[in-house]
Protein backbone atom coordinates (compact mmCIF):
# COMPACT_ATOMS: atom_id res chain seq x y z
CA UNK A 1 0.00 0.00 0.00
CA UNK A 2 1.27 3.43 -0.88
CA UNK A 3 1.90 5.77 2.00
CA UNK A 4 -0.70 8.54 1.56
CA UNK A 5 1.68 11.15 3.00
CA UNK A 6 4.43 10.13 0.60
CA UNK A 7 1.99 10.06 -2.29
CA UNK A 8 0.80 13.54 -1.37
CA UNK A 9 4.39 14.77 -1.10
CA UNK A 10 5.25 13.17 -4.43
CA UNK A 11 2.27 14.81 -6.06
CA UNK A 12 3.40 18.21 -4.84
CA UNK A 13 6.98 17.81 -6.23
CA UNK A 14 7.59 19.94 -9.30
CA UNK A 15 8.25 17.93 -12.43
CA UNK A 16 9.36 18.66 -15.93
CA UNK A 17 6.68 17.16 -18.11
CA UNK A 18 6.79 16.24 -21.76
CA UNK A 19 3.16 15.49 -22.36
CA UNK A 20 1.60 13.05 -24.80
CA UNK A 21 1.57 14.53 -28.28
CA UNK A 22 4.66 16.63 -27.58
CA UNK A 23 7.95 16.00 -29.37
CA UNK A 24 11.10 17.55 -28.00
CA UNK A 25 14.51 17.63 -29.70
CA UNK A 26 17.56 18.83 -27.83
CA UNK A 27 18.86 18.70 -24.27
CA UNK A 28 16.91 18.78 -21.08
CA UNK A 29 18.96 19.64 -18.00
CA UNK A 30 16.72 19.72 -14.98
CA UNK A 31 16.99 19.69 -11.21
CA UNK A 32 13.44 18.39 -11.14
CA UNK A 33 12.29 14.90 -12.00
CA UNK A 34 11.49 14.56 -15.68
CA UNK A 35 8.38 12.72 -16.81
CA UNK A 36 7.92 11.85 -20.47
CA UNK A 37 4.63 10.78 -21.96
CA UNK A 38 5.53 12.23 -25.35
CA UNK A 39 8.77 11.85 -27.27
CA UNK A 40 12.24 13.18 -26.53
CA UNK A 41 15.24 13.01 -28.85
CA UNK A 42 18.49 14.26 -27.43
CA UNK A 43 19.90 14.37 -23.93
CA UNK A 44 18.25 14.22 -20.54
CA UNK A 45 20.12 15.12 -17.36
CA UNK A 46 17.90 14.93 -14.31
CA UNK A 47 17.66 13.41 -10.85
CA UNK A 48 15.03 11.04 -12.16
CA UNK A 49 13.35 10.16 -15.42
CA UNK A 50 10.01 8.47 -15.83
CA UNK A 51 8.99 7.30 -19.27
CA UNK A 52 5.30 6.50 -19.31
CA UNK A 53 3.63 3.87 -21.45
CA UNK A 54 3.53 5.35 -24.94
CA UNK A 55 6.37 7.74 -24.11
CA UNK A 56 9.81 7.49 -25.71
CA UNK A 57 13.27 8.84 -25.07
CA UNK A 58 16.03 8.45 -27.67
CA UNK A 59 19.54 9.63 -26.96
CA UNK A 60 21.63 10.08 -23.84
CA UNK A 61 20.10 9.78 -20.43
CA UNK A 62 22.17 10.66 -17.38
CA UNK A 63 19.85 10.37 -14.45
CA UNK A 64 19.77 9.21 -10.86
CA UNK A 65 16.89 6.90 -11.40
CA UNK A 66 14.99 5.82 -14.46
CA UNK A 67 11.63 4.11 -14.55
CA UNK A 68 10.50 3.23 -18.02
CA UNK A 69 7.27 1.72 -19.17
CA UNK A 70 7.71 3.21 -22.62
CA UNK A 71 10.53 3.02 -25.13
CA UNK A 72 14.13 3.96 -24.57
CA UNK A 73 17.10 3.90 -26.91
CA UNK A 74 20.63 5.19 -26.79
CA UNK A 75 22.93 5.49 -23.82
CA UNK A 76 21.58 5.28 -20.31
CA UNK A 77 23.65 6.02 -17.23
CA UNK A 78 21.74 5.80 -14.00
CA UNK A 79 22.06 4.79 -10.37
CA UNK A 80 19.05 2.55 -10.68
CA UNK A 81 16.85 1.38 -13.51
CA UNK A 82 13.39 -0.15 -13.36
CA UNK A 83 12.38 -1.42 -16.75
CA UNK A 84 9.31 -2.51 -18.56
CA UNK A 85 8.18 -1.59 -22.05
CA UNK A 86 10.77 -1.60 -24.78
CA UNK A 87 14.52 -1.21 -25.07
CA UNK A 88 15.38 -0.52 -28.69
CA UNK A 89 18.36 -1.56 -30.75
CA UNK A 90 21.74 0.02 -30.11
CA UNK A 91 21.08 0.78 -26.48
CA UNK A 92 23.56 0.56 -23.67
CA UNK A 93 22.45 0.68 -20.07
CA UNK A 94 25.01 1.31 -17.34
CA UNK A 95 23.62 1.21 -13.85
CA UNK A 96 24.30 0.06 -10.33
CA UNK A 97 20.99 -1.72 -10.02
CA UNK A 98 18.59 -2.99 -12.64
CA UNK A 99 15.19 -4.42 -11.99
CA UNK A 100 12.95 -6.16 -14.48
CA UNK A 101 10.09 -7.79 -12.66
CA UNK A 102 9.05 -11.29 -13.62
CA UNK A 103 5.73 -11.94 -15.25
CA UNK A 104 3.62 -15.03 -15.72
CA UNK A 105 4.95 -16.94 -18.66
CA UNK A 106 1.82 -16.64 -20.77
CA UNK A 107 1.52 -12.91 -20.19
CA UNK A 108 2.89 -10.28 -22.52
CA UNK A 109 6.58 -9.61 -22.24
CA UNK A 110 7.55 -7.25 -19.43
CA UNK A 111 10.36 -5.85 -21.55
CA UNK A 112 11.19 -6.30 -25.18
CA UNK A 113 14.90 -6.02 -25.70
CA UNK A 114 16.43 -5.17 -29.03
CA UNK A 115 20.18 -5.42 -29.52
CA UNK A 116 21.53 -3.86 -26.38
CA UNK A 117 24.19 -4.03 -23.71
CA UNK A 118 23.57 -4.17 -19.98
CA UNK A 119 26.37 -3.19 -17.62
CA UNK A 120 24.90 -3.63 -14.19
CA UNK A 121 26.68 -3.48 -10.84
CA UNK A 122 30.30 -4.31 -10.30
CA UNK A 123 31.99 -6.37 -12.94
CA UNK A 124 31.44 -10.03 -12.03
CA UNK A 125 34.61 -11.83 -11.07
CA UNK A 126 35.07 -15.52 -11.46
CA UNK A 127 35.39 -17.32 -8.17
CA UNK A 128 38.60 -19.33 -8.29
CA UNK A 129 38.21 -23.02 -8.94
CA UNK A 130 40.62 -25.86 -8.82
CA UNK A 131 43.46 -25.68 -11.32
CA UNK A 132 42.41 -26.82 -14.74
CA UNK A 133 43.60 -30.27 -15.54
CA UNK A 134 46.23 -30.17 -18.25
CA UNK A 135 45.58 -32.33 -21.23
CA UNK A 136 41.79 -32.34 -21.00
CA UNK A 137 39.78 -31.67 -24.10
CA UNK A 138 40.18 -28.17 -25.46
CA UNK A 139 37.71 -25.47 -24.70
CA UNK A 140 34.92 -24.87 -27.13
CA UNK A 141 36.07 -22.47 -29.80
CA UNK A 142 35.00 -18.91 -29.37
CA UNK A 143 33.13 -17.07 -32.01
CA UNK A 144 35.90 -14.50 -32.11
CA UNK A 145 38.50 -17.19 -32.33
CA UNK A 146 39.95 -16.36 -28.93
CA UNK A 147 40.37 -18.64 -25.97
CA UNK A 148 40.85 -18.42 -22.25
CA UNK A 149 39.03 -15.74 -20.31
CA UNK A 150 35.82 -14.50 -21.82
CA UNK A 151 35.78 -10.84 -22.60
CA UNK A 152 32.88 -8.69 -21.50
CA UNK A 153 30.59 -8.17 -24.46
CA UNK A 154 31.49 -5.22 -26.60
CA UNK A 155 28.96 -2.39 -26.51
CA UNK A 156 27.16 -1.67 -29.74
CA UNK A 157 28.33 1.29 -31.71
CA UNK A 158 26.21 4.23 -30.58
CA UNK A 159 23.94 5.51 -33.29
CA UNK A 160 22.22 8.84 -33.53
CA UNK A 161 18.66 8.80 -32.28
CA UNK A 162 16.26 7.35 -34.76
CA UNK A 163 12.98 8.97 -35.56
Amino acid sequence: MADPKKAEAAASVKKTLVEEGTEFKGSIVSKCPVAVSGRVEGEVHAPSLTVATGGAVFGKMRVGQITSEGEIAGEVEAESVLLSGRVSNNTIIRTKTLEVKPVAEAAALRVTFGDCVLEVGEEPKKTPGTSPVQGTAPAAPKADGGGGQPKPPAPPAPKPPQG
Partner: peptide, 15 residues
Protein backbone atom coordinates in the same frame (compact mmCIF):
# COMPACT_ATOMS: atom_id res chain seq x y z
CA UNK B 1 13.05 -14.14 -24.13
CA UNK B 2 11.16 -13.35 -20.93
CA UNK B 3 13.79 -11.58 -18.88
CA UNK B 4 13.66 -10.86 -15.18
CA UNK B 5 16.44 -9.18 -13.22
CA UNK B 6 16.46 -8.62 -9.49
CA UNK B 7 18.19 -5.61 -7.96
CA UNK B 8 21.68 -6.67 -6.91
CA UNK B 9 22.38 -8.83 -9.93
CA UNK B 10 25.63 -8.23 -11.80
CA UNK B 11 25.58 -8.21 -15.56
CA UNK B 12 27.94 -7.71 -18.42
CA UNK B 13 25.39 -8.85 -20.91
CA UNK B 14 24.77 -8.23 -24.54
CA UNK B 15 21.28 -9.10 -25.69
Amino acid sequence: THFAFEPGCKLRMRI
